[in-house]
Design a protein around this nucleic acid. Structure first.
Length: 299
DNA sequence: CATATGTCCTGAGAGC
DNA sequence: TGCTCTCAGGACATAT
C-alpha cells in the first residue's frame, strides 16, 4: 500500500533516469489481466518513444515522469504497485518496461524503468499539458501532506462530520496519507481516531499537522514500510525499514510502545483497519507531547 | 453538497 | 489435496 513515504522513496530511487530518452516500451506477456493504460498501450508507446525524461516528481501517491515536451507520465501504484530500475520481485507481475537510452554525457545509471504490480490495480497514464490541470489540479488533489499548514488543514476539515481518521484519507483534503500512516499520525498526536473533525481543537489540528510531517519524514528516511506480506520495495527491490518503528499499525493486542500501559486496539472505520492506544488517544485528557510551534509554518 | 458504499484485482490463509 | 471463502485497501464511480 504505497503511501506518501513509499512513493517518495520510489521517486528518489529512480532519479537516475532523468536525462535519459525512452527508446522503447514493452508489455511482457502474461495471463494476468492488463493494467489500465490511458491512452491505450499502443497509443502510449507511439507517443512516448523518443521522448526524454526531464524530471521525476510526485503528486500525492503518484509518481510523475515529466517529459521534454511538457507532457507527464502519471504512475499510480495504488495497492500493490512498484516503480523499479532493476530486480523486479517476480517477472510475472512486470506490467510495463521502459527501455532507456543514456546519451554520452550522462554518467552510468539505469537503462530500464519498470512498473510492477502484483494485483493489477495500478494505472499508467500519459497527460498532455492541457489535461494536467483536470487530473492533478487542486480540485482533484489537495495540498501535499508534507507542506500543508495546520490552518489550511483545519479550514478544509473543520466543518466535516467525519471521524478524523477517515478524513485524513481523503486525498482532496490532503494528499499522501493512507491507512497505515493515518493511524500512526493520530497516535503520535494523541488524538482519538473516532473524533469528528468538527470537534477538534486548534491545538489538536496543530499536533496532527506537526506529527504528519514528523512521521512521514521519518518514514521517508527509512525508505517506507514493508509489511508482513513483503510487497512494498524501493526502486532496487530492497525492503523499507519503517515497519520496525510503527507504534500502532498492525500491532493489535500489543502493549503500547509509548505509554507502556494501553493495549493497542484494532477496529474498522470506513471498511479500513484503524489501530490506536486507548490510553494515549483519549477523547479528553492531557497531551504531553507539545511540538515546537516554529514547525507549524508551511514552507 | 457531504458522505457512504461498491468496484476493481490477486494472493495468502483459513476452514472443510 | 483441493476447493471455496474471506480479507487486504487506494482511488474512483455511483448512490443516498
Amino acid at each position: 500500500m504505497p503511501e506518501l513515504p513509499e512513493v517518495e522513496t520510489m521517486r528518489r530511487g529512480i532519479l537516475g533516469v532523468v536525462g535519459t530518452t525512452i527508446e522503447s516500451i514493452d508489455q511482457p506477456k502474461s495471463h494476468l489481466q492488463s493494467i489500465d493504460f490511458t491512452p491505450s498501450f499502443p497509443a502510449l508507446r507511439k507517443r512516448l518513444c523518443g521522448r526524454t525524461i526531464a524530471d521525476v516528481g510526485r503528486c500525492g501517491k503518484r509518481v510523475l515522469l515529466h517529459l521534454d515536451d511538457t507532457s507527464i507520465v502519471v504512475i499510480e501504484p495504488r495497492m500493490a504497485g512498484l516503480v523499479l530500475v532493476s530486480n523486479p520481485p517476480t517477472s510475472l507481475h512486470v506490467r510495463v518496461i521502459f527501455s532507456l537510452d543514456r546519451p554520452a554525457p550522462l554518467e552510468t545509471g539505469p537503462t530500464e524503468l519498470m512498473f510492477w504490480d502484483k494485483r493489477g490495480l495500478g494505472k499508467v497514464r500519459l497527460l498532455a499539458p492541457t489535461e494536467v490541470e483536470q487530473v492533478l489540479g487542486p480540485e482533484k488533489i489537495g495540498p501535499d501532506a508534507l507542506i500543508i499548514s495546520p490552518e489550511t488543514l483545519r479550514e478544509r476539515l473543520r466543518k466535516s462530520q467525519r471521524p478524523i481518521k477517515v478524513a485524513l484519507l481523503d486525498q482532496k483534503a490532503v494528499a499522501g496519507i493512507g491507512n497505515l500512516y493515518a493511524s500512526e499520525i493520530l497516535h503520535r498526536a494523541g488524538v482519538d481516531p473516532r473524533v469528528s473533525c468538527n470537534r477538534l481543537s486548534v491545538p489538536q489540528w496543530q499536533r496532527i499537522v506537526y506529527w504528519t510531517r514528523a512521521v512521514l519524514n521519518e518514514a521517508i528516511e527509512y525508505e517506507g514500510s514493508t509489511l508482513s506480506d513483503g510487497t512494498y520495495r524501493n526502486a532496487l527491490n530492497d525492503p523499507g525499514g519503517y515497519q520496525n518503528h510503527h507504534r500502532v499499525y498492525d500491532r493489535g493486542d500489543e502493549q503500547c510502545r509509548q505509554c507502556h500501559e494501553g493495549i493497542i486496539q484494532r477496529f474498522v472505520q470506513a471498511q479500513r483497519s484503524t489501530y490506536f492506544c486507548p490510553n494515549c488517544q483519549q477523547r479528553r485528557g492531557l497531551h504531553p507531547r507539545v511540538p515546537d510551534p516554529k514547525l507549524y509554518d508551511a514552507t
